[in-house]
Simulated scan of single mutants.
Amino acid sequence: AAMPGSVPSALSPLPGCAFAPRCAQATDDCEKAPPEVVSVGAGRVSACLLTPEQLAADRVPGPAGNPEPVVVQSLRPATSEPDAVTVTDVTKTFAVAPRGRLHALRGVKLQVGHGESVALVGESGSGKSTLLRIIAGLEKATTGSVTLAGAGRPQMVFQDAGASLTPWLSVGELIGERLRGMTRTARREAVIEVLDRVGLPAEVAKSRAGQLSGGQRQRVSLARATVVPPEVLLCDEPTSALDVSLAASVLNLIGDLRRSLDMSVVFVTHDLSVARVVADRIAVMYLGRIVEIGPAEQVIGDPTHPYTRALVDAIPDLGRESRVLPGEPASPLSPPTGCAFHPRCPIAVEACSGDELDIRLVGKPDGAHQVACLERKVP
Rank of each mutant, 00 (worst) to 15 (best):
A95K: 04
V299D: 07
R376F: 09
G327S: 04
E123Q: 06
S322V: 01
T166I: 12
S353N: 09
G152L: 07
A161N: 02
Q211T: 02
P329M: 03
G363Y: 10
R133D: 14
A56G: 14
R76S: 14
A84I: 10
Q370F: 03
V204P: 00
V112E: 12
P82T: 10
C339R: 05
P63L: 13
A348I: 05
C339N: 11
Q211F: 02
V72S: 13
V371G: 08
E173I: 00
P154Y: 01
V371S: 09
R187A: 15
A1P: 15
L253A: 01
Q370E: 15
P35W: 14
D58N: 06
S74Y: 07
Q155C: 07
G176S: 11
G215A: 03
D243W: 08
H270D: 06
A95Y: 10
I300G: 14
F267T: 04
I192N: 12
H342R: 02
P238I: 05
A47Y: 03
T147G: 13
R133K: 12
L374A: 11
C352Y: 03
P82D: 14
A136N: 04
I192W: 13
H103N: 04
S164Y: 00
P306S: 12
V96T: 03
R309H: 02
S170N: 02
G301S: 00
V220R: 00
S129W: 09
E116K: 14
L105F: 01
A104H: 13
S249E: 07
A97Q: 13
C48V: 01
R344M: 00
A47W: 09
M285C: 08
V220K: 00
L120D: 14
G172M: 05
V265H: 10
V228P: 09
D302Y: 10
A314W: 08
I254H: 06
A78K: 14
A47R: 07
V378K: 09
D366R: 04
V291C: 07
A372C: 06
C352E: 02
V227H: 09
F341H: 05
P69E: 10
V157S: 08
E53C: 11
V227K: 09
L148H: 11
R178A: 12
A24Y: 07
G41F: 04
K92F: 13
T185Q: 15
D358F: 05
T269K: 06
S170D: 03
P69C: 09
V349A: 02
L110K: 11
